[in-house]
Structures are given as C-alpha cells and as structure tokens.
C-alpha cells in the first residue's frame, strides 16, 4: 500500500518536473558568456586551456571554495573518526602478493611524476590541480594496498595541505594589495602563450591545488584505513 502510494506520488512529481523542464530550450545556442570565454580566454588569462581559464581565472573564487569543501570534509572526517576511539594499526590484514609489492616500487614514483605533470601543465593541456591531486592520492592508495603496515607521515600531510591552502589565500590577498586591487587578480606577467611559465598566477594556484588535493585525499584514505577493525 505504502509502496503504491509512493510510486504514484513519484510518478506525479516526475511528470511535473519533466513538463516544467520542457520549457528549457534543448540544444539552444551557447550562452553569451560561454561565447565570450571561448573568444577571449587566451588573451585575458594567457592560458591555452579554456576550461582552466574559467576554473582558475574568471571563477577562481569558486575554486577556492571547492578546495575548502574538500578540506573541511577531510578535516571533519578526521575529527569524527580519529576521536571515535578506533584502534590504530591494521593487524590481521593479509600481506599483499609479490606482484603488487614489487610493482609498487616501480609505479609509485612514476604515478607521482604523472600527477605532478598533470597539475603543472593544467593551463596548457587537459587536466589540472584536482585531477593531478587525485592521481597523486592514488599512488598513496597503492602503497597502502601493497604494504599494509605502512602509514603516511601525518604531519607531512598536514603541513602540505595547510601550506598549499595558505598559498591560495595569500595569492588572493596579494592580488588585493598589488596592481588592480582585486582579490585573486592575476598580478604576475602572463608570459608567452603555450609555454610552461605563462598565464601568471594560474599555474601557481594549480600547483597548490594539486598538492593540497593529493595530501587531503591521501589523508582521507589513511583515516578510513584506521577503522578496518
């Protein structure tokens, strides 16, 4: 009975939402702002990757907020799990196979290098800080899988995530005090298009985001590993 009523309600709501959304022109031409970004992003920001120019240029403040969302989620998880009285250490976990532990020795530095490549080249090629950071965290996940006894250096992770977060805020404040006096204004020279040292503050911010996301996700993995008992 309850299920039937629920299904009927759901159907009514679904049809209503569907009819309302029909009013949105589907496949209509792009928005004016989108056109502006595609036309002018290279000149405005000096980044050849238009997505990056929006994420770290025009809407960089959103990105600061998103980095903070991840930071607060990782911190909250740490606060709830670390004090929950869980036993540290992971006894009784089966040791990894030889292939995994031997492969890890080769792969770990390569994955880190790949992650670093992605976030340092975020203004030139697809990818950026978030993607590079996730790749770096996957390297640490591999370490956990291959050698169950190993732990990340927690103070190192805290140091990295706090310093990189502060770098982001400090760049914003420098923009507020230097040059055009706008928070997160691009106060560094834009350089030549398509070179590594171009686009002003964008690669600096992406490096900070890459390190921050990498250390935060690695910290989340570490926190969740503690509770395997």
């Amino acid at each position: 009975m309850r299920a039937t009523v629920g299904l009927i309600l759901l159907a009514v709501i679904g049809v209503g939402v569907g009819i309302s959304l029909l009013a949105i022109p589907f496949g209509a031409p792009k928005t004016e702002i989108g056109d502006y970004y595609i036309e002018n992003a290279r000149e405005d920001t000096g980044a050849t990757n238009v997505v990056t120019s929006v994420v770290v240029g025009y809407r960089a403040f959103d990105t600061l907020g998103e980095v903070t969302v991840l930071f607060v989620a990782a911190l909250g998880l740490g606060a709830v799990l670390a004090t929950a009285g869980g036993k540290r250490g992971r006894s009784g976990v089966e040791p990894a196979s030889l292939i995994l532990s031997a492969g890890n020795i080769f792969l770990f530095p390569l994955i880190l290098l790949f992650g670093a490549y992605i976030f340092t080249h975020g203004h030139l090629t697809p990818g950026g800080g978030f993607q590079g950071g996730a790749v770096i965290a996957s390297a640490f996940l591999l370490v956990y899988l291959s050698s169950p006894g190993k732990r990340i250096n927690e103070s190192g992770a805290t140091l990295t995530e706090s310093v990189s977060g502060l770098v982001f805020v400090a760049i914003g404040l420098l923009g507020l005090t230097y040059g055009t006096h706008y928070f997160l204004a691009n106060f560094l020279p834009k350089g030549t298009l398509n070179t590594l040292f171009s686009a002003g503050i964008i690669p600096v911010i992406y490096c900070a985001i890459g390190l921050k996301v990498g250390s935060e996700l690695a910290g989340v993995v570490d926190n969740l590993m503690e509770e395997t008992e």
Binding site: L159, L166, F183
Partner: peptide
C-alpha cells in the same frame, strides 16, 4: 573579500 579570506586563512593556519 576579507570576510571570507580572514576566516579561511585562519582555518588553514590553525592545523599548521
């Protein structure tokens, strides 16, 4: 912008 930047900076600095 300082209404956001100040507490955010403090939040990053406190664990450090």
């Amino acid at each position: 912008p300082l209404y956001v930047a100040i507490p955010l900076g403090a939040a990053f600095l406190i664990p450090l």
